[in-house]
Design a protein around this nucleic acid. Structure first.
Lengths: 337, 337
DNA sequence: TAATTTATTGAAAAAGTTTTCAAAGTAAGT
DNA sequence: ACTTACTTTGAAAACTTTTTCAATAAATTA
């Protein structure tokens, strides 16, 4: 077995106690910075600890204390590109509060979510942070039946009383639509991404609200058929026969696909068509023209979610349940207005 | 405390034993699919388990069995975009073998690595998988002094006897250089990325080998100064006064920066300059022209690393220590040859 | 000096599982 | 009916820590 100290004797709190000539209770107190141990004894124990290279066993601590200082992070396996900064934010804050992160990914199958929860329950994570971008209502229901402290991250979740760190995409899309309609644009189109049903609903609500404000009805969903594994292939066909005043996409990859498809069909952006990508990424600035997009504070979403989680674990109840972070619309070269 | 079963009585192996009228030893045997329990008893215990909603406590199991079924994954926090597929591969295989993944990230500071190891030792992870893209020699030395099973993933590592799943970038760059020199290209340039010192060394070795085969010496490092936080800004200046036959970059973002900088300075790609990006990504296919690149089997790197790890944990020794996966050069529109 | 308080320590129980060893029960063979 | 062998079960120890409670030692007060 490739165990920790091959060959060498395993060093536990007993070894340290023996080495220092004290009881294990005293060693435990030294480890945990308890104030009620004599300075001289502390020195002796600390010397024994470094001499033996003792490291407390977090598993045994977990058992004794009934907490693991581990947070489970549940994310959809497909969208890592968008997760990067969120995870960085999470981890930076987790480090400060000495929490570990256990990573779990969901695939599309329904059974999977209860399997993941099963796993998390078994591992006795102190809390769960869920990126809710691709969750179905079914999955959210499963998650809510679950009594470990939980924070949803990403966009607004409908479950009542859920702790939620999010960006208000509905408002973002409403404002965008409203602005364009005021400028006289009517032919607005949203490229549909099958993979984010909940997110999509939210975007649509925003657009609908914008249209109904001006007594119009939105009717511009462009759905990429299932059989196209590459959205560019479909869009290239699509823009042969279609042209719109404003095209909205969710992800950078789709925006780039639209850009290429339009360009190759002689539709110039932004002269003939405006293009907006909802979720910002570094790549939206790397193509020409740069693509207008909403800056989403991903790092902050992650960091705040983790901070909220530590608060939940410290105090029994928290006052605030909803933490809304603001997007920033970045008007770049792919749009005229 | 937001504990597991608020209000309700906590359900342990004792509760189940009591409910089923057996001893805890028997319940443990049922949980672990031991063959030596009577069919009828098993039924009774299983009924009790579902009735009470019992889930074994992995922490207690970890203590009793002296293993946590957790693998620590150490990655540099900066390069998540490249990590996505690797993590997916890792997690898919981890799921099969019922391992959990604990995520740790390194920042640039030296002290950090020993802090992370300290944390991993405490948490008693069964094994460690390290993405060694951005590691310094110092950090590798620290890691090697550490007796938990370890797999290095990404590129070839110099430490003797280390278990390593990698792509041979040196060979890739050698082949590329050789091919270009054979076609009469001499003015070859590599954009230097300060962030991956080890990786960079390997690429340079490959290029040097290609040059020395033809009795030439490589002298084409283009270093982006520290004070430019955006490589595009520097490259835009650079390509005002410089022009090369072949430009090689490590990452997609740099390739795109080169593409834009050249285009905006009237250097057309591929007519005047060939452009190759070493590490493939979906984005290299999304710009025009598409950028020639090496397809790196990231998912497989992750999956294989995890598989190797499970083998290491099963059997004391493994025969193979080095697992080399092959890249595929993808000749696209940014290159003439 | 004796009594009282305070500071420091240790013994033992508790956390929830696995596993060894012995005991009890059952079936088979004579 | 009586060994013998095998199947099934349970009691108890082990895993490594924290924490409570009681005991001892030291310091203070009367």
């Amino acid at each position: 077995m490739g165990t920790l100290n091959d060959g060498k004797k395993k060093v536990t709190i007993y070894s340290v106690a023996h080495e220092a000539g004290v009881s294990l209770a005293t060693v435990s107190r030294v480890i945990n910075d308890s104030s009620l141990v004599k300075e001289e004894t502390r020195k002796r124990v600390e010397a024994a600890i470094v001499k033996l290279g003792y490291r407390p066993n977090a598993v045994a601590q977990g058992l004794a204390l009934k907490k693991t200082t581990t947070i489970a992070l549940v994310i959809p396996d497909s969208s890592f590109l968008y997760m990067g900064k969120i995870i960085n934010g999470l981890l930076d804050v987790a480090k400060i509060y000495k929490y570990n992160i256990a990573l779990h990914t969901t695939s599309s199958s329904i059974s999977e979510m209860s399997e993941i929860i099963d796993n998390i329950v078994k591992s006795r994570a102190d809390g769960v942070i869920v990126y809710n971008d691709c969750l179905t209502e079914n999955e959210i229901a499963i998650l809510n039946s679950f009594s470990t402290p939980m924070v949803y991250i990403g966009h607004k979740i409908k479950a009542a009383d859920a702790c939620n760190v999010f960006v208000d995409y509905k408002k973002a899309l409403y404002e965008l639509t409203d602005k364009y309609i005021q400028e006289g644009y009517k032919d607005i189109v949203l490229i549909q991404d099958k993979k984010n049903p909940m997110m999509m609903d939210e975007l649509l609500e925003g657009i609908d609200k914008g249209f109904s404000k001006h007594n119009m009805k939105f009717d511009g969903l462009v759905e990429i058929p299932e059989n196209y594994h590459n959205s560019y292939d479909y869009l290239n066909e699509y823009f042969k026969d279609n042209k719109h005043q404003l095209v909205i996409t969710v992800r950078d990859s789709q925006a780039m696909a639209v850009l290429n498809a339009c360009t190759e069909n002689g539709i110039s952006i932004p002269e003939e068509t405006d293009l907006v990508c909802v979720m910002d990424s570094r790549y939206t600035d790397m193509v020409r023209p740069r693509i207008s997009s909403f800056f989403i504070p991903s790092y902050d979403l992650g960091a705040l979610a983790m901070r909220v989680m530590t608060k939940m674990l410290d105090t029994d109840e928290i006052k605030e349940k909803e933490y809304q972070l603001s997007y920033i619309y970045k008007n770049k070269a792919s749009t005229k207005i």
